[in-house]
């Protein structure tokens, strides 16, 4: 009887308003059969963590083009963990310099996807890494 769906929050933290990429990704995730909660632009890390909690999501996808990723992404991870969402997978998409990728991963980001990543890649990453209790 149980009907479990993978739930993904897609958010754009920070001040850049270019949400085309985030919308394309949201659409791709929808077509992969996930329930995608789209929150839109100019979200603070606090707003994102709070939405992730209320929606009880499995994945938080952050889209950043502004260059503020080293401040914003670790903050989201920290807030999620602080409120007890230990298993939530945080993935980042956007323009992230190579040298920052490892630093983000060290801060708890599960994966970073650059421009042009085929959707199959992040869809599979989610399918392989979300721990869905049987």
């Amino acid at each position: 009887m149980s009907e479990r769906k993978i739930r993904v929050l897609v958010a754009k933290p920070g001040l850049d308003g270019h949400d085309r990429g985030a919308k394309v990704v949201a659409r791709m995730l929808r077509d992969a059969g996930f329930e995608v909660i789209y929150t839109g632009i100019r979200q603070t890390p606090q707003m994102i963590a709070e939405a992730a909690l209320q929606e009880d999501v499995d994945v938080v996808g952050l889209s950043i083009l502004s260059g503020a990723h080293m401040t914003l992404c670790p903050k989201v991870v920290e807030l999620l963990r602080a409120q007890g969402q230990d298993n939530v997978l945080v993935i980042v998409g956007g323009i992230i310099p190579e040298e920052d990728v490892e630093k983000l991963k060290a801060a708890g980001v599960a994966a970073v996807f650059g421009p042009g990543t085929p959707s199959q890649e992040y869809v599979n990453f989610i399918l392989n890494n979300v721990k869905v209790p049987a």
């Binding site: 769906k5 929808r30 995608v36 789209y38 603070t44 707003m47 209320q54 929606e55």
Partner: peptide, 26 residues
């Protein structure tokens, strides 16, 4: 067709963010 969904109502609800007296579920 896919069983997926795009839940977009929160986009309009940003002014309620951070209020402990509100709980929104899509």
């Amino acid at each position: 067709f896919t069983g997926g969904a795009l839940l977009g109502d929160r986009v309009r609800m940003r002014s309620l963010a951070g209020d402990p007296g509100v709980f929104v579920r899509s």
